[in-house]
Write a protein that binds this DNA or RNA. Structure first.
Length: 880
RNA sequence: GGGCGCUUAGCUCAGCUGGCGAGAGCACCUCCCUUACAAGGAGGGGGUCGCAGGUUCGAGUCCUGCAGCGCCCACCA
């Protein structure tokens, strides 16, 4: 009945068991379960164009710990996996790999074959890339990401994630596109999505607008340039401006001088109050601009008066909007100065100055402007070098510009206090792990400065599913978008045709034009609950899984993924998307820096899994507290491996001795005919502690604190092997008779049985292996241990017998070790002094103590004044 | 500048609602092939729990202030 290997090993368990689990459908979701029986997990879809690193292994293991616990605790776990193949990383990768470029204006080519080496020369453009249709491009994406997905899945299986692999999705697949478009059209219909021409943050490298959530600040060198503006009517002197005739401002962006539309100072700033309402002339360009007042102007910054340009930063946009100023834009979408001067630059000198800047990059224009200002004498002193924070697109490498363009937005509370408050309130409907992470969510919402810009001027992604009618002049009528029918989704407006039109009318006056843009990748990612749970496609599944129970994710993407998902659920379903958010920390390298590819400090998971085994790697991960950044530490993996091996050996010992005497807490007796109760004091004490451990581990798991559950179980386990097994060994071998052995057998198997289940969420392979030695079915479908069942085995609740006996044994060992003798050497005399109560207890475990300590003569001396037992040991003479 | 987190042995960290004679693992040192395990086992040294006050019979644990580190947000004149 039991099949315990001679030399158990942890090697090879991953391949063996992941195969079996798949074959037996151990993790298959039972979709007949009702909502209250289901625990649904909104798994983060990893970006497949990269590679998985230890950070992924870390956080996905945490989720799996929880998933496995919930499954054993009786929940039907809904645990799908997605792949994020949407967005810029994949676009770039497909582009480089195949030497192609997406051009949405091209028609789909059914017979298209990816070029082997950059493609056929005639179709290749100036950049050496072959232009293909969006649909062809997306197909190539699937070709490329399919390989990644297989590699990722293989890694996850090797790691032992208990995902239901029959439920996967890819964020660019047809179903996800359909759901993303349908959700967008829902937002549009309810008035939550809108289009507007407005200044927005623009990445000149990627040529697209970006959202507030995708920004990051980077410290860059810059310089303050002090520039003189001339008050109108003030005469200019050959020797320089007359006192009081100029106004000096400081700027880090002198190249925007031509875009200046006003100067601004704080309304209470006495220095500039006389100037409010007057006008000044911009140097070089001679444009007359007003001096205005606004409370955002800071008197102690620079000279206290600033130039407002369209647009140098987001404050400029605020001033421009609130003060109703004109637009004088000079930076184009490529980040260059526009060829033609903006209105207002009328004079010859001004036009000549502008000529010198036109077509240059922002940086080039800056140098040139400074030269011009030097020449005109309007640069006061030399530029002062500083370091300041500049806004970047998080994936970009050039500073963002602000460009006015027509974009689609989804309301997210950035411009609407009521919605903002409602979204903040949604945060309180979720339980945050750890709790303080909610602060980041609230904090982010409170700091929003505008709605969510979702359109991107890119080619690859989910298209915005709209067309626009063209008027007789061929101009789009933006306010009357043509909406596809639901049955047509997903659509690609660049190749599909709106109802009532035919392809020949594309771009023709009176015809139509497709929206060229795609949606931000977060616009799809924000719908992972809808995608995973089958919203609008599988109402039955939806009913059983949504709102979801748990969203695991990194704390760095609270402002993007977490928040945008909350927005979509709030708008679309009037609820929070999940009941629990579990935020995981980062993996830090030994220098306490976040590990990342660019820093070159990434260790590949496969190597580590091969070296230490999945259970060991998982052990390391599970030691990371929820939400806490954790150092990458191979040492922990060694310990994890040791733990797994120890489990194998302890199990081998227990089972080979007991034959698997299963302690039926209830009626069914074990093979040797007994089912408790356990009378031996040592055994009973151990089991009582085990019951306490089960309670602690269960509590910890209920609070999503897998790390604590592991720590407690591990601590108990080592005491079990080091002390209990050593003490009970002789008795278990039969040294004190059959009756006494039976209790030990029961206790050993009961403890093993419970410990295996406690460790199963962490060490799924080794626990399954051991389980299979004497049990049917998977340990991962076994019931989570119940403290009450263990209590039932020990009617007399003993106290402290285990700990007390172990401490005496420890003293005996110490004496032997300190005498530099083997532990096998007999202790001729051991005298234990302790309180009457302790001695009464020790009397009950006396025989075990004598066995384990090889004690020849054991005497107890009562001394109630002792807080801790005193142990005197006399060893047998050393023959050597 | 606003908010949050962290600061306990050389290193990585536990210490949850105050009782700890301050813990674990790693590293270090010593000893032991003991029939589950030498890819083991048994032991040992090592900390005024960031600093300063306060509450309390009692504070690593609660309160206040300070310092250092880190993160999020704001900061482009």
């Amino acid at each position: 009945m039991t099949q315990v290997p001679e030399r158990p090993t942890v090697d090879g368990l991953e391949a063996k068991w992941s195969q079996r689990w798949e074959a037996d459908g151990v993790y298959r979701f039972d979709r007949t379960a009702t909502r209250d029986q289901v625990f649904s997990i909104d798994t983060p879809p990893p970006t497949v164009s990269g590679s998985l690193h230890m950070g992924h292994v870390f956080s996905y293991t945490h989720t799996d710990n929880i998933a496995r616990y919930r499954r054993m605790a009786g929940d039907e776990v809904f645990y799908p996996m997605g792949w994020d193949d949407n967005g810029l990383p994949t676009e770039r990768r497909v582009q480089n790999y195949f030497g192609v470029r997406c051009d949405p204006s091209l028609p789909y080519d059914e017979n298209f074959e990816p070029p082997a080496d950059g493609g056929d020369a005639k179709a290749v453009d100036a950049r050496g890339e072959l232009a293909i249709s969006r649909r062809n491009f997306i197909e190539l994406c699937h070709v490329l990401t399919a390989e990644d997905e297989h590699a990722f899945e293989a890694l996850w299986r090797q790691l032992g994630l208990s995902v239901d692999w029959s439920m996967t999705y890819a964020t660019i697949d047809e179903r996800c596109q359909r759901i993303a478009q349908r959700a967008f059209l829902g937002n549009l219909e309810r008035g939550e999505a809108y289009q507007i021409e407005a200044p927005s943050l623009w990445d000149v490298t990627f040529g697209t607008a970006v959202a507030q959530a995708e920004l990051e600040d980077r410290e860059r060198p810059g310089a303050y340039h002090r520039i003189a503006f001339h008050r109108t009517g003030s005469p200019r002197s050959r020797n320089g401006p007359l006192p009081g005739s100029t106004v000096e401002i400081e700027t880090t962006r002198p190249e925007l001088l031509a875009a200046c539309v006003a100067l601004v100072a704080h309304p209470d700033d006495e220095r500039y109050q006389p100037l409010f309402g007057s006008t000044v002339l911009t140097p070089l360009f001679g444009v007359e601009v007003p001096v205005v007042a606004h409370k955002l102007a800071e008197p102690d910054k620079g000279t206290g008066i600033a130039m407002i340009c369209t647009f140098g930063d987001t404050t400029d946009v605020t001033w421009w909007r609130e003060l109703d100023l004109p637009v004088r834009a000079i930076v184009d979408r490529r980040g260059r100065i526009s060829p033609d001067p903006p209105h207002g630059i009328e004079g010859t000198a001004g036009r000549e100055a502008y000529e010198r800047l036109a077509g240059r990059t922002v940086g080039g224009a800056r140098t040139e402007t400074v030269e011009l200002l030097r020449g005109s004498g309007d640069l006061i002193g030399e530029p002062r070098q500083i370091t300041h924070a500049v806004k970047f697109f998080e994936k970009g490498d050039r500073p963002l510009e602000i460009v006015s363009s027509r974009q689609w937005y989804i309301r997210n509370g950035g411009r609407d206090a009521e919605l903002r408050d409602a979204l903040i309130a949604r945060g309180s409907e979720m339980t945050w792990h750890p709790p303080y992470m909610q602060g980041r969510y609230t904090n982010w919402i409170e700091g929003l400065s505008g709605d969510w810009l979702i359109s991107r001027q890119r080619y690859f992604g989910v298209p915005i599913p709209l067309w626009y009618p063209l008027d007789d002049a061929g101009e789009p009528i933006w306010v009357q978008p043509l909406v596809p029918g639901d049955g047509a989704l997903p659509v690609d407006p660049s190749s599909d045709v709106p109802a009532g039109y035919d392809e020949s009318q594309r771009g023709q006056p009176g015809g139509f034009v497709g929206d060229h843009d795609v949606m931000d990748t977060w616009a799809t990612s924000s719908l992972t609950p809808q995608i995973a749970c089958g919203w609008s496609e599988d109402p039955d599944l939806w009913e059983r899984t949504y709102p979801m129970d748990m969203r695991p994710q990194g704390h760095d993407i609270i402002r993007t993924w977490l928040f945008s998902t909350a927005v979509r659920s709030h708008l679309g379903h009037d609820c929070a998307p999940w009941h629990h958010c579990a935020l995981s920390g980062w993996i830090l390298d030994p220098d306490r820096k976040k590990m990342s590819k660019s820093k070159g400090n990434v260790v590949t998971p496969v190597d580590l899994l091969d070296t230490y085994g999945a259970d060991a790697v998982r052990y390391w991960a599970a030691n990371g507290r929820p939400g806490t950044d954790t150092a990458f530490d191979e040492g922990q993996m060694k310990i994890g491996r040791r733990l797994a091996i120890k489990l194998l050996n302890a199990a081998k010992f227990a089972l080979s001795l007991t034959g698997g005497a299963t302690p039926g807490a209830t009626a069914d007796a074990g093979p040797d005919g007994r089912a408790g109760p356990v009378c031996n004091a040592l055994d009973a004490a151990l089991l009582a502690e085990l019951a306490g451990l089960v309670r602690a581990a269960t509590d910890a798991f209920e609070n999503f604190d897998y790390a604590r559950a592991l720590e407690r179980s591990e601590q108990f386990f080592w005491r079990f092997t080091d002390d209990y097994v050593e003490l009970a060994k002789g008795r278990a071998y039969g040294g004190q008779g059959e009756e006494a052995a039976a209790d030990a057998h029961l206790t050993l198997t009961a403890a093993l049985d419970v410990l295996l289940r406690l460790f199963a969420p962490f060490l799924p392979f080794v626990t399954e292996e051991i389980w299979s030695w004497w049990r049917d079915g998977s340990v991962h479908r076994a019931t989570w241990p119940d403290a009450g069942e263990i209590d039932a085995l020990v009617p007399d609740h003993p106290s402290g017998a285990f700990e007390l006996t172990a401490s005496v044994l420890s003293e005996v060992r110490r004496a032997k070790t300190e005498a530099r003798r083997s532990l096998r050497v007999p202790a001729e005399k051991v005298r234990v002094g302790s309180t009457a109560v302790h001695i009464a207890t020790l009397e009950q475990t006396r025989a075990d103590l004598i066995d384990a300590g090889r004690i020849e003569s054991l005497t107890f001396v009562t001394d109630d004044s002792l807080a801790h037992p005193e142990v005197d040991v006399t060893l047998a003479p050393d023959d050597a």
